[in-house]
Design a protein around this nucleic acid. Sequence first.
RNA 1: GACCCCAUCGUCUAGAGGCCCAGGACAUCGCCCUUUCACGGCGACGGCGGGGGUUCGAAUCCCCCUGGGGUCGCCA
Length: 467
Amino acid sequence: MTKNVRTRFAPSPTGYLHIGGARTALFAWLYARHTGGTFILRVEDTDAQRSTDASSRQILDAMEWLGLDWDEGPFYQSQRLDLYKSYVDKLLEEGKAYWCECSPEELEERRKIALEKGGKPKYDGACRTKGLGPGPGRVVRFNLPQSGITSFDDMIKGKITVDNSELDDLVLIRSDGMPTYNLTVVIDDALMNVTHVIRGDDHVNNTPRQVLLYTALGFDLPVFAHVPMILGADKTRLSKRHGATSVTAYKDMGYLPEALVNYLVRLSWSHGDQEIFSREELISFFDIQDVGRSAAVFNPEKLIWLNHHYIKTGDPHRIAGLLPDFIKARGYSVPDRTYLDRIVQDVRERTKTLEEIVDFGDFYFSEKEPPEGLKADFFKPELAGVFRSLVARFEKIDLSVKEQAEESVKGLLEETGMKFKVLAQPMRIALTGKTVSPGIFEIIATLGNERVIPRLKKALAYMEGQE
RNA sequence: GACCCCAUCGUCUAGAGGCCCAGGACAUCGCCCUUUCACGGCGACGGCGGGGGUUCGAAUCCCCCUGGGGUCGCCA
């Protein structure tokens, strides 16, 4: 029987959930779900200076929004300090760790000199043999082997080998008594029985030192899988310079979680030529074996294409339910749900985000006065007659039934011998204030008599005023 | 600078020695549909970084070069 898979996502609450972090979390979550394993959430808040509760909450919210639910946790490392300390004591006793009194300033200085000499700016081991005890300003360092090699098998990258002489004695306990990342991550992954450590590429270089720590602590090694980075258009690490990088920002811009998930999963992972994946498909298809080794460039255009795809194929009722926040943000009052449902169905083929639904469909929420130029161009006096008949006909029927309006206009066209093309734009402008909109009859049906008639009359009055 | 990693269209990728004078998707550009704009359909443009090997045969294997990324913190 194979060991039950256990994966985890371990964000540090020093900011929002980054797109790259979200993709890593997604992979770890998918792998757990795919294998029927367990997904753990662990907040790595050992940096007391920068960690905040607000960040923690925001990250958890973003995870939930993406639908990445966890089976265990969230665990907070700041609540496990005694645990880490007991392991460090053990290392100290066994001579596998030692106290160091070098100050950050001197270390910085020495690093600079080493760099100038063209060497590796690593800790020189000055305190290794001093036999120091605890004291103010002192840290605990890991006493790692100075020779030999360390290697591990990465599920994505393959075998990675590093000469131990490249490594230096990392800090385990800071001078303020707080443990550091490399220590806590190893202890927690081991104690939480994490079987697959799935994390960003930027951790590859930390891994050999952690492997050494696992060994020193007497733990079994997990399997490592380092996911390639996501880069910006200029192929440098994705950052704010490249646009929005937080999951929350995409939510606020009107992206759907399924679109972001679908976009993110295709970065460095693929399943043949398939582009669109349901959550169920993702769970059944996803495997770390299929994750590529090279970095991917974040392409906002493709994300927006996917978002549009999900907007135009998703359940309109559900999408309508997501609209109120965006409607309020534009200062409109929120109409009833049935009306919203119809709006979504009217506009979704031409709107790529929830925000766009509200902007493109602005005329649904309030009457939009057409610009003077449009009125002059389209509300020609010679149209007054037809418009008058149009209004008269519309007043007698229920416009919310699309067929009735269609029949009515058809009759009018037959009667006057006029082409619909001539009537369409003036009607559109009268109803929406602009030249681009959903189909005329869709608009009419959604707007209904109480909105359509006054707008048409207003246009008619303008035409008559020109006569 | 040192170390680690990576390298197929502009971008995401398929491709695990012959099925590939390289397939799909986004973007771009045409055409069709059409009440505007879209949607949809059809088509076009566009790539195996370079050089050596291995092999009957290489996008696929090996080496070098080049290019790119990552790390070198009392951040994670």
